[in-house]
Write a protein that binds this DNA or RNA. Structure first.
Lengths: 148, 148
DNA sequence: AACAATACTTGTAAAATACAAATTAAAAGG
DNA sequence: CCTTTTAATTTGTATTTTACAAGTATTGTT
């Protein structure tokens, strides 16, 4: 467990699992992709289709259909922009907001549980490191450019 | 950019992208899932179908079909175990091994590039932190249990 | 020998994905 | 203004991925 790539491979996989398991609220069970979409709509200010699709590096045509199902699930609304009718502004419904905050809480629980296996100092080091890593990735040319 | 969940959300997404973009060798272009399968077959000693599927938390029936396509792509072989004919032992073909090492090299390049945006001390801190995090996750009950 | 358990595959059906082409609306050029 | 171009999004189509239920084949158990 000492080479860089191996460390990241395992980490990636585990995050994938964490995201996969995170996201059921009551009877409704949503996919990782859907949870990321909801997360971003919640976070960004009056985002358009293209903005979210780009942030998540999802093909726009695929995204269009994903939004359609999220609308059917009554988690998201899509309204034409007043300035420019080519754009649609995405937003969460009340149910969607509830979903977002439930997922948020559940993810925070997961993360807290994971962090509870480290001491105070380790926890801070890890958080600081992830910030460093995110920062380094955002400067990198090999990945991650569209993602904030 | 200061809450735990946000940090992990962005990190997860970027790793996803990194894995997505990593994996084309010449004309052959393989998916993230396939690259993880190849990685694990390469790493484990004479693994069976179930072992890899479990390591990667993939449904066995899905996995069965994924292996079928990897065999068609001539990257993987599947031979019945001599002791117990219910088992199949998976292995990489020469081409598969080449693919594995090419992906390995390319991922290492990516990671080196990313790490190059940090100083020596930061790099070591980050690596140490990821080890800590992996360790904490492996102790956690909320995720990651089957994954090594 | 009969029955259960194990490892894996197939039937089927739904969901996710992405390219090309279509639609609609705004901007730009003449 | 009217035509042409560009931009944001959707639909047609076809492939791939996924997973549940049921099936096959092999081994273990009584």
């Amino acid at each position: 467990m000492d080479n860089k790539r191996e460390l990241f491979q395992v980490l990636t996989r585990r995050f994938g699992l964490l995201n996969k398991n995170c996201c059921s609220v009551g009877a409704i069970d949503i996919s990782t992709v859907h949870s990321h979409i909801i997360y971003e709509i919640d976070k960004q200010h009056e985002p358009t289709m293209q903005q979210i699709a780009e942030t998540l590096a999802i093909d726009v045509t695929t995204f269009s259909r994903q939004i359609q199902t999220l609308i059917k699930m009554e988690l998201v609304t899509k309204s034409p922009s007043l300035n420019d009718k080519r754009f649609y502004v995405l937003a969460l419904t009340t149910q969607g907001k509830f979903m977002a905050s439930t997922i948020e809480a559940s993810m925070n629980n997961y993360l807290d549980e994971i962090f509870s296996h480290m001491n105070e100092f380790e926890q801070e080091t890890v958080l600081r490191s992830i910030k460093l890593l995110n920062n380094a990735m955002s400067k990198s040319s090999v990945c991650c450019t569209p993602l904030m």
